[in-house]
């Protein structure tokens, strides 16, 4: 178990990085606008395809919500690290004597907050356009979105940081990220569908447990490997 001083230093560094990312994004609002616009466009296009005569195809809403989260998440990950690459500031972070896993945790928290902010727009939009009872079990919905987004962002942050110097990073990121996060997305889709069903609470809780398991595995592996993958 980590000493209290070590844990405090880890959290202080992570918060410093997260706060910096929030400040930078608050001033530019570049990623949030782009990501929300892209995700909302995705959902609108799907709505034209899957809603006929005002009636959506059964159970399609949860899949469309998670597809929009995954696509917009990839966009946010790419843009966040592109910003760090542009002025080589990621290299400056790597040069600091701070623990590199703490730097990873800080970047992850920033991306997580960004994705959750986008989801706050997407969920009502999906509920409206697909007449989906997404708010039937709000606590379970929050748990599903929180744990699913964490698992997705945990792997995504590691890969986006790893690929920051790769020439074809924009192509490689989804190619690497989607196959590994497919279990998270499937669990999110099935869990959200269960949370919308009248008697799906038990099943939704099981999917939340599954997502928490994925989170633990992905976070542990990412924290463990970040130092190695960031040293050339």
């Amino acid at each position: 178990m980590a000493a209290p001083g070590t844990l405090r230093r880890f959290l202080a560094t992570a918060w410093l990085i997260t706060r910096k990312d929030i400040t930078v994004e608050w001033r530019s609002r570049e990623i949030i606008y782009t990501t929300v616009f892209f995700a909302a466009s995705c959902i609108l296009v799907f709505a034209f395809g899957f809603v006929k005569d005002g009636r959506p195809i059964d159970d399609v809403a949860s899949a469309i919500l998670w597809i929009a989260i995954a696509f917009s998440g990839t966009l946010a990950l790419g843009r966040t690290f592109e910003r760090e690459r542009y002025n080589e500031t990621l290299q400056a972070l790597m040069l600091a004597p701070a623990d590199r896993p703490a730097i990873y945790a800080g970047k992850l928290a920033g991306i997580l907050l960004l994705m959750l902010a986008v989801e706050a727009v997407l969920v009502p939009l999906v509920a409206l356009l697909f007449q989906a009872p997404l708010f039937r079990q709000p606590v379970l919905l929050v748990a599903l979105l929180g744990s699913g987004t964490l698992g997705y962002a945990a792997v995504g942050t590691l890969f986006a940081a790893m690929l920051v110097r790769a020439r074809s990073r924009d192509v490689l990121l989804p190619v690497l990220l989607y196959p590994i996060t497919i279990p998270v997305i499937i669990a999110g889709v099935r869990g959200t569908a269960a949370a919308m069903a009248p008697d799906g609470g038990e099943m939704a809780r099981a999917w939340v447990s599954m997502l928490v398991f994925f989170d633990v595995v992905f976070l542990t592996l990412s924290l463990w490997t970040f130092e190695a993958v960031m040293t050339e």
Binding site: T13, L16, K20, V24, T89, A92
Partner: peptide, 27 residues
């Protein structure tokens, strides 16, 4: 201490905020 050709500064932050950020990162 290192200074690359790219300057390792955040253009969206002020000069003071940049220095404060790195000062805290280096404790």
């Amino acid at each position: 201490g290192a200074l690359g050709h790219d300057l390792y500064l955040y253009p969206e932050l002020t000069a003071r905020e940049n220095l404060r950020f790195f000062a805290r990162l280096y404790e």
